[in-house]
């Protein structure tokens, strides 16, 4: 120990098949962000615009897994982050994007790209730049191991704050009454 302030925790965040609403909820912790920045340093995140995730203590992921790129990013986060949090309904359950799970993927592509006559409707996009969709949308924990879940659409800022401060204090985070609901 050199007597200086303790090392800041490194935190990375990303959105997979999500709407960034959960990230808005992160911003919604408002002025407490300043207190948080005393203790954490953001790695890859829309806040920093860093594109590659480095070795982190904590990864926070919004959105489910709907395509090949999501799988890759999620696995990258799992490898680089000691602790992974699934943030919000889509990450926890698949959420809105998972509503397509009752339909077959070929049927959906057919309907979207081939249902109108004419040349411009004839092709399903096949550019290698575009990630291929999985046949179903999955919650994060069906693809990698997840350590903590924060439910909600989006989760309230207070719930995010409670989990983060809990983890910073080295406690097992628990939302408890008022911050978690069934149905």
């Amino acid at each position: 120990m050199d007597g200086t302030a303790p090392r800041k925790l490194k935190v990375a965040t990303t959105s997979l098949a999500g709407c960034f609403g959960c990230h808005m909820s992160i911003l919604d912790i408002d002025e407490r962000l300043f207190a948080l920045l005393e203790k954490v340093e953001f790695d890859r995140s829309p806040i920093t615009d860093i594109k590659e995730v480095g070795q982190c203590d904590l990864g926070i992921i919004e959105g489910g897994v709907c395509n090949a790129e999501n799988v890759e990013v999620l696995r990258e986060f799992r490898r680089r982050c000691k602790v992974l949090i699934a943030l919000g309904a889509c990450a926890v359950n698949g959420g809105l994007p998972a509503q397509r799970n009752t339909l077959s993927l070929p049927l959906i592509l057919q309907e979207v790209y081939r249902s109108e006559p004419g040349a411009r409707y004839g092709l399903i996009p096949n550019d290698p730049e575009l990630p291929l969709p999985l046949n179903k949308v999955h919650p994060l924990h069906e693809v990698v191991r997840i350590d903590h879940f924060i439910p909600g659409c989006p989760p309230p800022a207070d719930a995010i704050w409670k989990v983060l401060t809990g983890l910073l204090e080295g406690k097992e985070p628990a939302l408890g009454h008022g911050l978690i609901h069934f149905d």
């Binding site: 090949a68 799988v71 077959s104 993927l105 070929p106 592509l109 057919q110 399903i124 996009p125 096949n126 290698p128 291929l132 969709p133 999985l134 046949n135 179903k136 693809v143």
Partner: peptide
């Protein structure tokens, strides 16, 4: 996971 992309591969020819 790879098999979960099979339908999309078939539809796009990729």
């Amino acid at each position: 996971l790879d098999r979960a992309l099979a339908a999309a591969r078939q539809m796009t020819g990729r």
